[in-house]
Design a protein around this nucleic acid. Structure first.
Lengths: 146, 146
DNA sequence: GCTATTTTGAGAATCATTCTCATAATCAGC
DNA sequence: GCTGATTATGAGAATGATTCTCAAAATAGC
């Protein structure tokens, strides 16, 4: 059993809930994928591998996964909530191109530290943060010059 | 005429659009208010002051205001997009309490600088950023101890 | 195996947001 | 201040992501 499965199972047990087949299928599918995703895309992938996992169950499982600390809600894109792993991934920020929609992921210890520091200053117990920056990406800047 | 009105008028003119009465009403209402807001709340306030400004027009005007640089989309709260001023306000980040929903706004030059630096490093032309941190606020931490 | 509880799938319901379209306001040029 | 071309508007319908409902199925503890 994978680490994340153990984490999720323990989290569920502690809440009196069960690691059922659909929940396992959702978890596996999410951790087999390594970028942010929206629920509809996730649902489509799940359908190709497992029968009879309903969209409703996928929607229902997401908050549990978030609460367990395995994933987090990240950016919102095309009117859809996107999620991404936390477990096994460092915190990172997103540079989102307003021209082409490209999303660049950047890790930065400096940001981590500044935010932690600010949280402490404000007596805030930091759990997770999201940093999304918008602008124009390198490619679009270059193409514009043509 | 207020600065923001001039900015908006010029922006619209440059796009061949007009600063109409409903657009002016929306702009005034937004700048009379000094925190982030969602469109429904905005619409309700507008209704108390002006007749005949439709919800559709409010929705239609928001992207224009964003594009003009006067406001930006900030956090998403209770399934609603929230907006906030940019004009006349420093960039700031949000500490959102997962217990009570309180939102603490914090300004930080350090964050600004780190992000600018990272953008440069990645040849990304930074336009605007949103930083939302989640956790437990000071009050809820204290109350928990009781 | 039995029972109480938790889950589930399917589709209906909700609700923020966007679209449609016929009518109204606007501006430039006269 | 009128005219025509263009842009805006309000009202309500349409869309689409997300949530809810409910009867049936899986589960864990006994």
């Amino acid at each position: 059993m994978q680490d994340y499965e153990i984490i999720f199972r323990d989290f569920l047990k502690q809440k009196g809930l069960k690691l059922t087949f659909p929940r396992k299928a959702i978890l596996e599918t999410i951790f087999a994928y390594h970028r942010h995703f929206d629920i509809d895309a996730l649902y489509e992938v799940i359908r190709t591998k497992y029968d009879n996992v309903s969209r409703a169950t996928v929607y229902r499982t997401m908050p549990l996964l978030v609460e367990s600390g395995l994933i987090k809600q990240s950016l919102r894109c095309q009117a859809k909530d996107n999620y991404e792993h936390i477990y096994g991934h460092r915190d990172h920020l997103h540079f989102i191109c307003e021209k082409c929609g490209a999303i660049l992921e950047v890790e930065s210890e400096a940001i981590d530290n500044v935010i932690k520091h600010l949280a402490e200053e404000n007596h805030f117990q930091l759990n997770i943060f999201n940093l999304n920056a918008r602008g124009i990406c390198k490619n679009c800047l270059q193409n514009r010059e043509l």
